[in-house]
C-alpha cells in the first residue's frame, strides 16, 4: 500500500538567511492607528481654538464657569511625562533581560494609573463646581477632549498591564512590547498639547 502513495506535507517556507523585519507589523499597525487618532485630537483642538476665539466679549472661561485647575494638573502632567521616561528605561532593560524590565514597567503602570485616577478626581470636583457637558461650550469641549484622552489613556494602560503580565510569564516579545509602547507614547505626547491649549488658554 505504501509503495505507491505519496504524502504531501505543508511546511512553512523558511525565511531567507539574514532576513529580518525592518519594523514589526504590530508597530506599523499601531502607528497607522495613532495617526488616525492624532487627527481626531487635531480636529477637536482646532474646533476648540476657533470657538474660544469667537467667544462673546472675548471672555474665556465664559461667565459663571469655573477656571480649570492648571496648577494641580501640572502635577498630573509631570507624572505622565515621567512615566514615558521610565518606559524608555524599561525598554532598555528589556533588551538586556526580561527580569530587569519588570520594575520600570510596573512603575510606568502605577504612574499611568495615578494620572487616570487624578483626572477622575478632578472631574468630580469640576462637576461639583457646575462645569458640565451642558453648562457651556467650554464644558462641552473640556469633557470631550479630556474625556477622549482619558479613554485612550485607559486603553493604553490596559496594554501596559497586559505587557506586564506577559513579562511575568516570560512570554512578552520585543515586537509586542514595542507596539504597546507606541500607544503609551502617543497618550503622553498628546497630553501636553491638551494641557497648553485647553488648561492654560
Amino acid at each position: 500500500m505504501s509503495s505507491g502513495s505519496a504524502t504531501l506535507t505543508l511546511e512553512p517556507r523558511p525565511a531567507p538567511r539574514g532576513h529580518r523585519k525592518a519594523v514589526p507589523d504590530g508597530v506599523v499597525a499601531m502607528l497607522l492607528f495613532v495617526f488616525a487618532e492624532a487627527m481626531l485630537f487635531a480636529g477637536m483642538i482646532s474646533a476648540f481654538i476657533v470657538v474660544r476665539s469667537a467667544a462673546a466679549g472675548q471672555m474665556w472661561p465664559p461667565y459663571g464657569q469655573p477656571r480649570l485647575p492648571f496648577e494641580r494638573t501640572a502635577i498630573n502632567t509631570s507624572a505622565l511625562l515621567v512615566s514615558a521616561v521610565v518606559l524608555i528605561v524599561a525598554q532598555l532593560a528589556f533588551r538586556r533581560s526580561h527580569e530587569r524590565a519588570r520594575i520600570p514597567l510596573l512603575i510606568t503602570i502605577l504612574l499611568g494609573a495615578f494620572f487616570v485616577g487624578f483626572q477622575g478626581m478632578e472631574w468630580v470636583a469640576l462637576l461639583r463646581q457646575g462645569l458640565t457637558l451642558q453648562s457651556s461650550s467650554y464644558g462641552s469641549f473640556f469633557y470631550l477632549i479630556v474625556g477622549t484622552h482619558a479613554v485612550h489613556a485607559v486603553a493604553a494602560l490596559g496594554g501596559l498591564v497586559w505587557a506586564w503580565t506577559q513579562l511575568l510569564r516570560r512570554r512578552l516579545t520585543q515586537s509586542a512590547f514595542a507596539t504597546v509602547q507606541v500607544f503609551w507614547y502617543f497618550v503622553v505626547i498628546v497630553w501636553p498639547v491638551i494641557y497648553l491649549k485647553v488648561y492654560l488658554s
Binding site: 482646532s46 474646533a47 481654538i49 476657533v50 474660544r52 476665539s53 469667537a54 472675548q58
Partner: peptide, 9 residues
C-alpha cells in the same frame, strides 16, 4: 483673533 484662529487651524 477669530480670523487668525481659522487660518492657524
Amino acid at each position: 483673533k477669530n480670523r487668525a484662529a481659522f487660518v492657524l487651524t
